[in-house]
Nucleic acid binder design. Sequence first.
DNA 1: ATAATTACTGTAATTATATACAGTATATTG
DNA 2: CAATATACTGTATATAATTACAGTAATTAT
Lengths: 201, 201
Amino acid sequence: MKKLTKRQEEILNLIKAHIINLGFPPTRADIARSLGFKSPNAAEQHLRAIEKKGFIKILSGASRGIVLNDNENDQIPVIGLVAAGGPILAEENVEKTIPRSNNLLSSDIDYYLRVKGDSMVDIGIFEEDLIGVSKSADTKVGSVVVARINNEVTVKTLIEMSQNKVVLRPENQKYDDIIVNPQVEELAIEGSCVALLRETI
Amino acid sequence: MKKLTKRQEEILNLIKAHIINLGFPPTRADIARSLGFKSPNAAEQHLRAIEKKGFIKILSGASRGIVLNDNENDQIPVIGLVAAGGPILAEENVEKTIPRSNNLLSSDIDYYLRVKGDSMVDIGIFEEDLIGVSKSADTKVGSVVVARINNEVTVKTLIEMSQNKVVLRPENQKYDDIIVNPQVEELAIEGSCVALLRETI
DNA sequence: ATAATTACTGTAATTATATACAGTATATTG
DNA sequence: CAATATACTGTATATAATTACAGTAATTAT
């Protein structure tokens, strides 16, 4: 999908804000008034351009007939099994998506990851649970993190992190700590867990 | 708030459906067409009646200027500590509410209950977690239920349920099974847990 | 018993809105 | 270098939409 210009983005945001605030889209005149245009036709032409780029649909003849097209940015992907090698958010890993507006958790969640295995049961993270992962939340010692070790994705508690030693702890006595030297093995902290979701318990 | 008549409710539902389907409210003519009125004024007068009863606000002069007023039915209450004696959903127990539309869990959740204590940690239910409770979901042996025993509310696994013996199991070796004779003690199964929510783990 | 509410038809006027047409000027792309 | 896109002004008009007014008839409150 073609990118919007700065001005077009401004107009799209105005439409979204209008819908959130009042419950329905603005008219051409509303848009013109908000942005200081002296002609409603300026708004009309912007709308046509935004429609052409695929962000909205204009229903002809209907007043306020501006329909927002589904935008991938408004969807939080739910990641199932992560294929070895590729990036977590690769399309083939996406099990489904959840509209961001339907997110009752306050935190900033980039994706949900479906938990495999029993390595975190001691802190109440069970197989098939969904973990809300934030890429930006700061990962400090004690955080539950999503890590990638030699292209394998795993969820563990971060215990120690220094230049040549990273310790990741499974929260299950059955398993031992994972000790990695990031200068020898490939290691990346993909994000940290900020939420947990479980259905039909 | 005064109750709507059957016809008024029909119209309110039509408005809501229109907003969900198209993203903006219907016009008087849209409503008339949908319900078979021969005059848009029929819709107009219904809208005025619905507004008078407090369910919508009509913005004068604006096309499609129908604003839905917040409705408590669209909010899921989050229950904190349950005061001994009173009903779970009593107002003083409601910590906050979450709009039902922001519910990414498919199940039918009547309220969220904040977990107190560690009696369910073995199945990953921790203190401060939020449990999604359904009053209508069938409670069978093996379900995690919200039970009220002698006016005390508790979350446990239902192990046995017969006429004169109900067994509720805390999922923590530290605690023993609770065995209740419902013909002697007061017992009510308030609902069963269909979801779990945890923030900032 | 009377007033108010509910539930409409039918008409019409005013205003709100979409949208076409004619321009101007600058920036970007093929 | 021409064509296309961006970003508007300015005017005009058909039509979409609100909304007032005048009725009818049945039901429900006071």
